[in-house]
């Protein structure tokens, strides 16, 4: 990717402009045309982006970063104190027990061998 100032604005513009190619008038409550697309229409947006060499690297990482943020504790992280301020939605969605210093998961050693030969 070439270096681009105001990167988040660039990403938003790219998604919204490509959204209008897929659906020139997507109905919905959001200001962003991309946000108002159906899931299937959003897939088409990424199909376009995957096929465009100049933005393919961005298309590759955007869904991964989005999924990561959704299922992590990012929305409730207090970075200054290294704590969280509430139950992350992603943890509830994934039935994750939560971050902890340890778990009672120790099942011994494979073939009862603690050392390789």
């Amino acid at each position: 990717m070439p270096f681009i100032p105001n990167f988040s604005a660039f990403v938003a513009r790219l998604l919204n402009q490509t959204a209008l190619v897929v659906n020139p008038a997507p109905a919905g409550p959001f200001d962003s045309p991309f946000a108002n697309l159906s899931f299937n229409e959003k897939v088409v947006v990424f199909q376009y982006l995957d096929a465009a060499d100049a933005v393919k690297p961005l298309a590759g990482i955007l869904p991964a970063f989005t999924a990561y943020i959704c299922y992590s504790e990012a929305s409730v992280l207090d970075r200054a104190t290294h704590t969280i301020t509430g139950q992350p939605v992603g943890w509830s969605l994934s039935n994750y027990e939560g971050a902890n210093d340890g778990f009672g998961e120790f099942l011994g050693y494979f073939e009862n061998r603690r050392r390789a030969d």
Partner: peptide, 17 residues
């Protein structure tokens, strides 16, 4: 790994959606 990384890894592909 924890869930954020788990989800992120699942969504990082060269083979479309």
């Amino acid at each position: 790994q924890p869930p954020g990384t788990t989800a992120g890894l699942s969504a990082f592909s060269d083979a479309g959606i």
